[in-house]
Structures are given as C-alpha cells and as structure tokens.
C-alpha cells in the first residue's frame, strides 16, 4: 500500500458515499445517469468475484463489500425508491456500445485466459468507459448540480491517483499491470474536460454549465 493508492481508494469511497447521500438526502436522482451506475455495478461484481476465493486483507475485503453495496444501493434508489425522479430522457446513452467492445477486447487481450482473469480484464476495460453515459447526460442537460460535480471530481480523481500509484509501484516494487495502466489512462483522460470545468467554475462557486 502507498499514499497514492490509499488516497485513490479514499477518493473513490468518498465519491460513492457522496452519490448515495445526494440521492438519499435530496430524495432525487435528477442529473444522475442510471446507466453509468448499472455499468459500475457490473464493474464491481466482475472485478470482486475473488472476494470468495482470495483474502488479501480486511481493508481490501471491506472496501470491495462497500463498493458493491453502495453501487447496488444507488441502483435501488434510482430505479425503485426514487424512480419518479429518474431522468430517462437525458440518460439515453446506448450501453450496449460499451459492453460489447469491452467483452470482445477482454477475450482478445488479457493476461491469462481463465474465467477470473478475463472477467477482471473485462471489468478494467468497462470501468474506463463506464462514466460515458454520465458525462453524456451532463452534456445533454448542459449543466450539473454542484454535488454531482463533486461526485464526478472524486470519482475521476481516484483513477488519476491510481496512475501515480502504478508509477510508484513500477519503481519501488518493479511491478506493473499494463492492462490496468492503459485503461486507467483512458479513464482519467475522459474526465479532462470535466476537470477543467470543475476547477475553473465549480471551485469558484459557479454552477457547472457546459458551453451550449
């Protein structure tokens, strides 16, 4: 464990907590993409299957349980409890266009052709594009509530911090996982324009408005 990975995990934890709290306290999931949340649930389930086969640490296991729990709680809130506030019209990204290519890519490019490894690889590829429906929705609505932008900033930062963790592990432990690194770069790059808007607008107290 290193400071980059720990702060990345905490940023990720903060993001999922912000999201659940935002929906629970405002009793509304306006502006949130349910499709991205479904993709995240698939990411966590396919990546954390080793919960039942490998015990790494209490920290590792508890974080995995929290991420899976929070993502299903969010989906429950969005598609059941507060489904009246779910914005179907603006959440129109076709997630099949993300699922099919990532499944195919995981079957073609992976470390080992075993069930766990291919599912883990699929999860890594899917996570790198899972935020697209959410970013697409923000671009369609043209704006985002500030709490939603804090959620996106924390979520986007987590994988950016993981990039620093991988650089550290490469030099300190001579260990690297190329599939995770390339996907992590793609994932973080997708947030770049959002990061720019967040830093230049939201941090100055303005609302996140996309140029029309």
């Amino acid at each position: 464990m290193n400071i980059f990975r720990l702060s990345g995990d905490l940023s990720h934890l903060l993001a999922v907590i912000i999201l659940v709290l935002k929906i629970w306290t405002t009793r509304s999931c306006a502006g949130i993409s349910g499709k991205s949340q479904i993709l995240f649930a698939i990411v966590y389930v396919t990546r954390y299957l080793d919960l039942v086969t490998t015990f790494v640490s209490v920290y590792n296991t508890s974080m995995k349980v929290i991420f899976i729990g929070a993502s299903f709680a969010t989906i429950y809130l969005m598609y059941s409890k507060f489904k009246a506030t779910y914005d179907h019209n603006h959440d129109s990204f076709r997630i099949e266009f993300l699922l099919a290519p990532t499944v195919i890519l995981a079957l073609l490019i992976n470390q080992k052709f075993t069930v766990l490894e291919v599912l883990w690889t699929f999860s890594i590829y899917l996570e790198s594009v899972a935020i697209l429906p959410q970013l697409f929705m923000v671009s369609k609505t043209g704006e985002a509530e500030s709490i939603t932008s804090h959620y996106l900033f924390a979520l986007g930062s987590y994988r950016g911090l993981y990039l620093l963790n991988w650089i550290y592990r490469y030099y300190a432990e001579d260990h690297y996982e190329l599939i995770a690194i390339v996907s992590g770069i793609v994932q973080t790059v997708l947030y770049c324009d959002f990061f720019y808007l967040y830093i230049t607008k939201v941090l100055k107290g303005k609302k996140l408005q996309l140029p029309a």
Binding site: D9, D50, T54, V56, E177
Partner: peptide, 10 residues
C-alpha cells in the same frame, strides 16, 4: 496462486 496475490488493488 502467486499471480492472484498480485491483484491486491481494488
């Protein structure tokens, strides 16, 4: 099983 151990990241 060592390889699986390497997957110690979330």
């Amino acid at each position: 099983n060592f390889h699986r151990k390497e997957k110690d990241e979330l």
